[in-house]
Amino acid sequence: GEDLPLPPGWSVDWTMRGRKYYIDHNTNTTHWSHPLESGPSSG
């Protein structure tokens, strides 16, 4: 998808195989999909 801006506290990194993933430092979790690309989340 597009390179959307990341929310505060997020960063992007790549695996050893070159796969892009996103790090949420607020909750110390990692995600394969961009936080703003996922569907609407409630709460």
Rank of each mutant, 00 (worst) to 15 (best):
22 Y>L: 00
22 Y>F: 08
16 M>R: 15
1 G>K: 12
14 W>V: 12
13 D>I: 08
19 R>Q: 13
6 L>N: 00
22 Y>A: 00
37 E>W: 13
28 N>Y: 05
4 L>H: 08
34 H>D: 01
19 R>T: 11
7 P>S: 01
7 P>Q: 01
1 G>S: 13
7 P>K: 00
26 N>F: 06
7 P>I: 00
30 T>G: 04
38 S>R: 12
41 S>Q: 13
20 K>R: 09
11 S>F: 05
28 N>K: 08
33 S>W: 11
27 T>V: 00
34 H>G: 03
11 S>C: 15
15 T>M: 02
14 W>D: 04
16 M>N: 14
41 S>G: 13
15 T>Q: 02
40 P>W: 12
43 G>S: 11
38 S>E: 11
40 P>I: 12
13 D>E: 15
29 T>Y: 02
33 S>L: 13
6 L>P: 15
41 S>E: 10
37 E>N: 10
40 P>R: 09
19 R>G: 05
5 P>L: 10
34 H>Y: 06
42 S>D: 13
29 T>H: 04
15 T>F: 04
38 S>P: 11
24 D>S: 02
20 K>L: 08
28 N>W: 06
21 Y>A: 01
24 D>M: 01
39 G>W: 12
3 D>G: 09
7 P>M: 00
9 G>Y: 03
35 P>D: 04
8 P>G: 05
18 G>F: 05
30 T>E: 07
38 S>D: 10
18 G>P: 00
33 S>K: 14
34 H>W: 06
30 T>I: 15
5 P>V: 08
25 H>M: 07
5 P>T: 09
17 R>H: 15
14 W>N: 05
40 P>N: 12
29 T>R: 06
37 E>M: 14
13 D>A: 15
5 P>R: 08
1 G>D: 13
35 P>F: 03
10 W>D: 01
14 W>T: 09
17 R>I: 08
19 R>A: 07
6 L>A: 01
41 S>H: 11
1 G>Q: 11
20 K>Q: 06
7 P>A: 02
2 E>K: 11
3 D>A: 09
36 L>D: 06
18 G>N: 04
8 P>Q: 08
32 W>Q: 03
4 L>G: 09
15 T>Y: 04
9 G>K: 03
15 T>K: 02
8 P>D: 09
12 V>A: 07
20 K>E: 04
26 N>R: 06
13 D>L: 11
29 T>W: 02
21 Y>V: 07
30 T>F: 15
37 E>S: 14
10 W>T: 00
2 E>D: 11
28 N>E: 07
15 T>H: 04
41 S>V: 12
37 E>R: 12
35 P>L: 01
25 H>L: 06
3 D>C: 15
5 P>A: 11
5 P>H: 09
13 D>V: 09
5 P>S: 09
15 T>W: 05
32 W>R: 04
22 Y>Q: 00
14 W>P: 04
4 L>V: 10
39 G>M: 12
36 L>F: 10
16 M>H: 14
1 G>P: 11
23 I>N: 02
37 E>K: 13
13 D>Y: 15
7 P>W: 02
35 P>H: 02
21 Y>Q: 02
38 S>K: 14
43 G>W: 13
23 I>F: 07
40 P>M: 13
27 T>K: 05
16 M>V: 14
37 E>I: 13
19 R>I: 14
32 W>E: 03
28 N>A: 07
29 T>K: 06
27 T>Y: 03
23 I>S: 03
11 S>Y: 04
21 Y>N: 00
31 H>D: 00
4 L>S: 09
16 M>T: 14
15 T>R: 02
22 Y>I: 02
19 R>C: 15
21 Y>K: 04
25 H>D: 04
24 D>I: 01
42 S>H: 13
27 T>W: 03
21 Y>L: 06
13 D>S: 14
4 L>W: 11
10 W>H: 00
9 G>F: 05
22 Y>K: 01
7 P>F: 01
29 T>I: 06
32 W>K: 03
15 T>E: 04
43 G>Y: 12
9 G>C: 14
34 H>L: 09
23 I>P: 00
32 W>S: 04
12 V>P: 05
28 N>T: 04
24 D>L: 03
20 K>S: 02
6 L>D: 15
29 T>S: 07
3 D>T: 10
15 T>V: 03
26 N>C: 05
2 E>F: 10
36 L>Q: 06
13 D>N: 15
30 T>Q: 08
4 L>Q: 09
8 P>E: 09
35 P>E: 03
8 P>S: 08
37 E>Y: 12
